[in-house]
Design a protein around this nucleic acid. Sequence first.
DNA 1: CCTCCACCGGAACGTGAGGAGT
DNA 2: ACTCCTCACGTTCCGGTGGAGG
Length: 419
Amino acid sequence: MTNPPKLDKLFDKFLQGQNIFKDRNALRPTYVPAELPFRDEQMNRIGSILGPSLRGAPPSNILCYGKTGTGKTVVARYVLDMLVQKAQQSGVKAPLKAIVNCRIVGTNYRVLRALCESVNARMPDGSEVPFTGLPTDEIRSILKKKLDREPNILVVVLDEVDSLVKRDIGQGNDILYGLTRMNSELENSRVSMIGISNDLTFKEMLDPRVLSTLGEEEVVFPPYNAVQLRGILEQRVQLAFNEDAIADEGVIGLVGALAAQEHGDARRALDLLRTAGELAERRGDDKVTQDHVREGQKLIERDTVTETVKTLPLQSRAVLFAVYALSSSGKREVFTGEVYNAYEDIAKALSLDTLTQRRVSDLISELDMLGLINTTVISKGRYGRTKKIRLAVSKRQIGAILDEDVRLSILAKDLFDQE
DNA sequence: CCTCCACCGGAACGTGAGGAGT
DNA sequence: ACTCCTCACGTTCCGGTGGAGG
């Protein structure tokens, strides 16, 4: 058995070393570059607000607004890093910092736990604070005790705070309120917060008490325009790719243009660039071309859809399947009632518990938020008010993914053979 | 102009898993 | 063994509503 010549060549490329990437980490969303272009204004604002902490004075709370990929998180990280660095250089006590992603961390309790972890607060017996089990009050007091042991300033970055408030109207406000109130309960230390929100209407959902403290200062992050995106891409290309790895000017232009369509999302742009690079690398091409970019775009789209569908809970998948089955049988738009009927059959066929319509209605809303379907509430006059539901992804793709689930695929065959 | 459908979506509550402390 | 937490996931109950048809 001889190696196919193609494979042989491919391996040769790897032997010659990385010929496309110099450092692909420079394209990852968590990467903090040495310079952040086009964000001077925001950096200065945040810097001058946080500055007093160097003299031991608690800084005001800040609220950062801007759509995804406008550099909010990276700027916050960058400024904090610089602040700590500066403090160390000049022999001043550096403020403590904690960065929490609220979307991932999720709940009141877990936010507190994450804070404990990042200031290294321990249980009385010295063990780590557990995932669950303690009353929230207790974990609060552990954190407070630890902070108060000596004068500290803790800067908490709450990334994606909006998801805290959205998830559970009462709860989210509770934790924010709790944090803002913590200052008056602490003797020696101070907590200040940087809230980062993707949602521009976030303020309206906030409890006025919280808003008045959290929103002391506001920093707005406008989307990057095409020129700025281009600048960022060029900077990162220098860091991430080897010389001449990019075929021509048009490649960056295309990435920028595609991302500009997505409201100037720099993260998307960098992600796309990385995917294109990886695609070129995998193919054994020595340059990244516009074709790689276009394909990368498709790949990313497909992957995210596949990923979200695959990680869907069974019930949600059954609901999605109901929508899919209905729209496969000709209709482009379906209504909640029809979906629920179809869902009932599907659930029965899968011997799943049949959920109530109320619950299914929530699942439909979730699918909408995930971008798998589009819904609009409409009125059919005499015939009631309902949601108009459409698949947001191509039937073929959904079908292909759902087909991988054996039981659903059998069901699908039954269904479509009847027609 | 009014009615009334078929759902929307808020609120409160129940259950059971996962875990801590005693 | 027993009590007490949180939290995800559901259910029950219910007030609210845009607009076609009378």
